[in-house]
């Protein structure tokens, strides 16, 4: 479904990604793990179109993403739930959700999608008229995910959805990730919490200083000695 082929990405003169290739297949949950500064957000932002590779290309379904303007990617079926949530703070919960459904197809299904999101996150329904900027961390994260889902995406990219959440909420987020996936939506997940990330996914990529150094099914990587040493301190 999504194929990133040998891309290099720079911030001005500084190279952040080196010859990175990943693939996400229809229906999968793919995790992207790595230390702080490894380049995970950079990779997602490149797929989202905020950054442009100097080498390589990105394919999504039949399209070459590298030639699509960034605001077109939502309509193709890619939803990006960015690092730090990036909600519209002065808009209400409902207005934020509406903003998630701006593509033509999503607009047509707006009511239906909203019911669906409210059924996934009942707490959001109670907060319909509250300004997003006043939500708690967990509520805000749910709204960020809900807003992403409003686009009726084929692929959801989540950048550290559990960041700053209490452990029980992290569990919830993982559950939701699985549930979203079970509804036929492919997930590309970036997660600090490597145990969670590897457990929830089908396959995973390990990114180290801008390069892919390991890939494989989640359970396999869980038992990988290098991973254990580097990320779990075992």
């Amino acid at each position: 479904m999504l194929k990133v082929n040998n891309i290099d990405v720079y911030y001005a003169d500084v190279q952040a990604l080196w010859d990175v290739s990943i693939e996400v297949k229809q229906g999968e949950i793919v995790s992207l793990v790595g230390a702080n500064g490894a380049g995970k957000t950079t990779l997602l932002n490149t797929i989202a179109g905020l950054l442009h590779p100097t080498k390589g290309n990105i394919e999504f379904l039949e399209h070459d993403l590298t030639v699509k303007p960034n605001h077109r990617r939502a309509a193709l079926g890619i939803a990006h739930i960015p690092e730090g949530r990036r909600l519209f703070p002065e808009m209400t919960v409902k207005q934020n959700l509406v903003m998630g459904s701006m593509s033509r197809e999503a607009k047509a299904k707006r009511e239906e999608s909203m019911d669906w999101v409210f059924s996934l996150f009942p707490v959001l329904k109670e907060r319909t008229w509250q300004a997003a900027g006043t939500l708690s961390g967990g509520e805000a994260q749910m709204l960020a995910i809900g807003r992403g889902l409003m686009a009726r995406p084929r692929l959801v990219m989540m950048d550290e959805p559990s960041l700053g959440l209490a452990p029980n909420l992290v569990e919830d987020v993982m559950k939701i990730t699985k549930e979203v996936n079970s509804q036929g939506i492919t997930v590309l997940l970036v997660e600090q919490n490597i145990m969670h990330a590897l457990r929830v996914c089908n396959r995973a990529y390990v990114l180290e200083t801008g390069r892919v150094t390991l890939e494989g099914p989640g359970e396999e990587l869980l038992t990988n000695a290098r991973i254990k040493e580097a990320y779990m301190g075992i």
Binding site: A48, L50, R72, P82, L87, P89, M91, M99, A151
Partner: peptide, 18 residues
């Protein structure tokens, strides 16, 4: 609403396909 969203967070608006 797109105008408001863009004024509050331009990048996020782009993520929304605006």
């Amino acid at each position: 609403q797109s105008v408001i969203a863009t004024s509050q967070d331009k990048d996020a608006a782009v993520y929304m396909g605006i």
